[in-house]
Write a protein that binds this DNA or RNA. Structure first.
Lengths: 198, 198
DNA sequence: GTCTATACCGTGATAGAC
DNA sequence: GTCTATCACGGTATAGAC
């Protein structure tokens, strides 16, 4: 046993600790001292694994962004009527949000003080734009009511979806209640947006 | 002219500057140095007006909380069918949110690291609970669909409403587009929650 | 009411031993 | 891979002159 003794940190396992603390105290409110105490190792040991605080943030939001953009590449987001694609993306976003909860939470709270944060904000806007285009298509196909501004509807829809990170906590038993949550969101939000008679 | 020369800061005018910077950089990301530069006076001059950074936060979130709780004391929130009271509170919340935008934005972003922040979070939960009770009444009166969890519906509804602070900016002309926004929110969110046939 | 100067501590990050 | 010790800097806050 060459590498066997106890569990040593890797950038990956350290990230899990960091993301948890970032979400508890906020990124700016978290010091390397906080992280070292939470991880049970010294500050300098953290620097052995990662270049610094910002790298931990970058790794975390990258993972969240990969999950979100991955949705847009799935078949369900690219085929069928636009209204169905909107519904699919909404449902899947809720799922990614619950499965990647800590990373997405961090992404949604980024302010823009550092380069990494500004990059994250930019990519978020890009995702929102892609979804907004989907809704636009659904209006053009006559499935979404045309009397509501598309940009506004997108913002409100994803405002509702994103707010889930503020209270959702996965069940210890691992029950798949993320699906049921997605179902409720689709009913509450999308039903109000459908064109009359559709 | 005894007090005439230029414009000297008061706790009130200083608060306006502080809230703006807090919202731009985040509360934790804002230093007294940032505030002093934004206000155009030195750090120590700020301490002449307020006890410190946290007092500025307390004043700001207090104003937001006063606005929100004030809604619950209005006649429209206390009379009529519960569904109408829910609609009234939703509409008025959007209005308070747009008129007190900077203060409410700050309130919705507090994390809980200081005593003031924890107090703010507690009062927010209290407000949410009051609204949730309203929705519960509306279900009991048969106006809201009973197949959706009340707590969940409240959270999603106010998740949508609260997300407005992330993008809404008042128009320079001062047009009352807050009313129109409230109308859209009520249609999108509440229409999906109504009991079938009502 | 505002300033300069400063106290004092916590910050992110590094050096080098083990 | 982890540690102790340390650095340079920026953080909140105060003292006291004007």
């Amino acid at each position: 046993m060459t590498t066997a003794k106890r569990d040593a940190y890797t950038p990956e396992t350290l990230l899990a600790v960091a993301v948890r603390v970032f979400n508890e105290r906020g990124y700016d409110g978290t010091s390397m001292e906080h992280l070292s105490r939470a991880a049970g190792i010294s500050k300098s040991s953290i620097y052995h694994h990662v270049a610094g605080k910002e790298e931990l943030l970058r790794r975390a939001v990258s993972r969240a962004l990969d999950g979100l953009f991955g949705i847009l590449d799935e078949p369900g987001a690219a085929t069928g009527r636009a209204i169905e694609r909107v519904e699919y993306v909404t449902r899947r976003t809720v799922e990614v949000l619950t499965t990647e909860l800590p990373h997405v939470t961090l992404l949604l709270r980024v302010r823009g003080n550092t380069r990494t944060e500004r990059w994250a904000l930019e990519r978020r806007r890009e995702f929102d734009q892609r979804v907004s285009d989907l809704l636009k298509d659904a209006v053009a196909e006559g499935d979404l009511r045309a009397d509501v501004d598309i940009r506004l509807a997108t913002r409100l829809l994803f405002g509702m979806v994103n707010s889930i990170v503020e209270w959702y906590r996965p069940q210890p038993g691992g029950s798949p209640d993320g699906d049921q949550l997605a179902e409720t969101v689709v009913r509450l939000a999308l039903d109000g947006m459908r064109a009359p008679g559709r």
